[in-house]
Nucleic acid binder design. Structure first.
Lengths: 344, 344
DNA sequence: TCAAAAGTGTTATCCTTACACCCATGT
DNA sequence: ACATGGGTGTAAGGATAACACTTTTGA
C-alpha cells in the first residue's frame, strides 16, 4: 500500500460539482445517494459508512487523477458523466477547501482530502438524468435562504433565538459583541438588509454555532465515535455528506452574485421562454421577489433578449410573447447581467 | 521513496501567494529569487533549474503538508513567513490550477502539482522584508495593464498586430472570427471599452497566441528540451517561474474587481492617509486614472473614511487633511467599496 | 364575466459624470 | 509670484424604485 501518505504531503483531490437546474420555478441541485466513499485508493473498495451517514445524499464527486486528466475541469466532467449520465455545459470553479475535520471520510480513510468545488448549470427537463441521481430543491437544504414569500418563519422561531444564545455564550463581552455583529451582518436586521449573496457566510455561522447537523456529526467522527441520529435534522435543512453542503452554499452564493453581471441565467432556460419565466427563474435562484416591470425594462435595456415572434399557447391567461437569449450582447457590453435588487 | 505516485491520484498541492503592496504610487508584488524547486518530496533536495529558467523570479510558495497544517490558508501563511519573513494580514483564495504542462517543475519532477493561488495585501514600508525576496512593480510583468497615462504604446505597436496575425492564422474563417471577437473583448476597441478586470483573460490570450515567454518555455520543457533564451522577453513583460504569472494575473484581476465592492484598499494604506494618497493607491491597482472630485464624493458618501483631525506637514503644496478608515462601515453597509469607473 | 397572466405609462429620487474654479503653503 | 497639490459648487443626464392601470385569453 503505497498510500498511507500523510507523513509528507500526499493528498487526494476530490472534485465536486453542484449541478443546478430550475424546474417548475424551483431551483434544484443534483444529488447522488451512495453507500460508499469513492475517494479512497484507485480501486473501488466500497467503504461502508457508519449507520446514519449512509442515508445522506451528497454531490456527485470523485478523485482527480492527474495521470488521466489534463486539467481539473476535465476530470470533473468525466466523473460527473460517469455518476449522473449528464453532460455538463457551463462550468465554473468555486473554491478549494482543505480543512481537517470538515471532510470526514469512511472510517479507514487514510489520505487527507482537499475538495475543489464547481458550479455547473444545466437546463433540466423534469426527469432525473439517471437512477442513482435525483434533483433536490436546494431550499430543502437551505430553508432560510428562500425569501420569495418574505422572511422565512424559521429564522424568527429557531435561528435567531439560538444564534442569540450562542453569542451570549461567548467568553468575553468583546467576543459576544463580535458574534452579534457577525449575526447581524449575515442575517440582517438593525438597518442591515438581507444580502442574498451571503449564503456561505450564513452556513458557516450556523455550523460554528452548532445549529446545523454536520457540526455535531463532524465533531463525533473526529473523535472516532459513530455518528448519532441527529434529531430535527430536517428543521435546519437536510444535511449532506462530507462538506457538500458547504460547497452547495458556495455555489448558491456565487450564482446569486454572478447573475447580476453575467448572462448566466440563460444557461438555465430553454431556447425560448417568456419574460415571466425568465423572471421566475431569477427569483428562484436569488431567493427574492422582483418588480415585474422594472425587470422587463432591465432585460430590454441591456439587450439581453430578442423576441422570437412566437407566442405561448397554453391556457390560463393571455398568451405571452416568447423570447430568446441575444448572444450578441456578449460582444457588445462588457458585463451584461440581470442586476437584481430585492423589491418591496 | 514512497513518492513516485502519478500512477494513481497522488498529487502535490502547491500554495502560492501574490503578496501585494503599493509603494510610492506603484503597485508591487513580492517575488522570490530561487535556484531550486522546493515542491519535490519533503526533504530539501534543491533541484537545479535548467540554465535560463533559474534567473526568473517567482511567487513565494511551498507544498501543502496536511499533516502539519489544519487548513490550506494556515499552510500558506507558514510558507510565506518562512520565505519572506513577512506576516500576512488580509488573505483571500483565488483559484486552483491543475493544468498539465503549465506547471513544469525541475527535470526530475515526478508528482503532478496542483497550484492553489492566494492574494495577500499588506502595507509595505519601502524596504524588502528579507534578503531573498524583493518588491517588483507588477506592471513590469504586465506592461499592457497600466492605462493611467492612456493606452500603453505597446498595445498598438506589438500586441495588436501580433494578435491580429494569430487570429488570421486560425484554420477556418469561423475560428478566425471567434479569435477576433475574443481579442476585441479582451483588449477593447470597436465599441468595447477597456475592462481593467480582465487581466487573466488577457494573459491567457497572450499565452495561447504565444506572445508571452512562458508559452514557448512550457512547450519546450514539455518536450524535454532545455529552455532556450527567449529574446525580447522583457518587451512582453518579465516572465515568471512555473505558472506564477498566471496566478499574479488572477490576483490583479480579482483585486481590481474587489476594490469596487469591498473596502480592501485600506489594507494597503497606513493608518492615516490623505484622500489623494488613497486615490493614487486605487489608481495604481486598477490601472486607470480617476476623477478627483467624484472620487472624494464617493468615499465620503459611502462613509468609508473619517478625518483624524491631523494635517500633513511635508512641503510642496497646501497641507492635506489626514483620514483614517472608518471601520464601522463594515457594520453599516452590506458591500462598501471604492467603485471605480475609468474617466475621461 | 371572472380569473389569470401579459403588458404599459409615469414620476420622484438618487447616482454618475462632467464641467470649472478657488485655497493654502513652500520656495 | 508661482508652482504644487488641496479642496469645492453646480448642473445635465441616466438609472432606479415605486406608483397603478389596461389588455388578452380560457373556463
Amino acid at each position: 500500500m503505497a498510500e498511507q501518505s500523510s507523513g509528507s504531503h500526499g493528498v487526494v483531490i476530490g472534485l465536486h460539482a453542484a449541478i443546478v437546474a430550475v424546474i417548475e420555478k424551483q431551483p434544484h441541485v443534483l444529488v447522488v445517494r451512495r453507500a460508499y466513499a469513492p475517494l479512497e485508493s484507485g480501486a473501488a473498495e466500497a467503504h461502508h459508512f457508519e449507520g446514519e451517514a449512509s442515508s445522506e445524499s451528497g454531490l456527485p464527486f470523485g478523485p482527480f487523477d492527474p495521470a488521466l486528466h489534463r486539467t481539473l475541469e476535465i476530470g470533473l466532467r468525466s466523473w460527473v458523466e460517469d455518476q449522473t449520465a449528464l453532460r455538463l455545459g457551463y462550468v465554473e470553479q468555486l473554491y478549494t477547501f482543505g480543512d481537517r475535520g470538515r471532510y470526514v471520510g469512511a472510517p479507514g480513510a487514510s489520505a487527507r482530502v482537499v475538495s475543489v468545488g464547481y458550479l455547473a448549470l444545466t437546463h433540466a427537463e423534469e426527469r432525473p438524468p439517471s437512477t442513482d441521481s435525483l434533483w433536490h430543491d436546494w431550499y430543502s437544504h437551505f430553508p432560510w435562504e428562500d425569501w420569495r414569500k418574505g422572511e422565512p418563519a424559521l429564522i424568527g422561531t429557531r435561528i435567531a433565538p439560538k444564534l442569540a444564545a450562542w453569542a451570549g455564550a461567548a467568553g468575553t463581552p468583546g467576543q459576544q459583541a463580535r458574534r452579534r455583529d457577525r449575526i447581524t451582518l449575515c442575517f440582517g436586521g438593525d438597518g442591515i438588509p438581507w444580502d442574498e449573496e451571503k449564503v456561505l457566510e450564513r452556513y458557516e455561522l450556523l455550523y460554528e454555532a452548532g445549529l446545523v447537523a454536520e457540526a455535531a456529526r463532524d465533531r463525533r467522527l473526529q473523535q472516532g465515535k459513530a455518528a448519532a441520529k441527529s434529531a430535527k435534522a430536517s428543521e435546519m435543512g437536510a444535511p449532506m455528506q462530507f462538506d457538500h453542503r458547504r460547497i452547495l452554499a458556495t455555489a448558491m452564493g456565487r450564482l446569486r452574485g454572478k447573475l447580476k453581471y453575467r448572462p448566466v441565467v440563460f444557461e438555465l432556460m430553454s431556447d425560448a421562454f417568456t419574460l415571466l419565466e425568465l423572471q421566475k427563474t431569477v427569483e428562484a435562484i436569488s431567493g427574492v421577489e422582483l418588480h415585474k416591470q422594472n425587470f422587463r425594462r432591465l432585460v430590454e435595456r441591456e439587450g439581453l433578449v430578442e423576441p422570437t415572434g412566437e407566442q405561448t399557447a397554453r391556457g390560463g391567461g393571455r398568451p405571452a410573447a416568447l423570447f430568446r437569449f441575444r448572444r450578441e450582447v456578449l460582444k457588445e457590453r462588457p458585463a451584461p447581467g440581470v442586476r437584481v435588487r430585492g423589491r418591496g
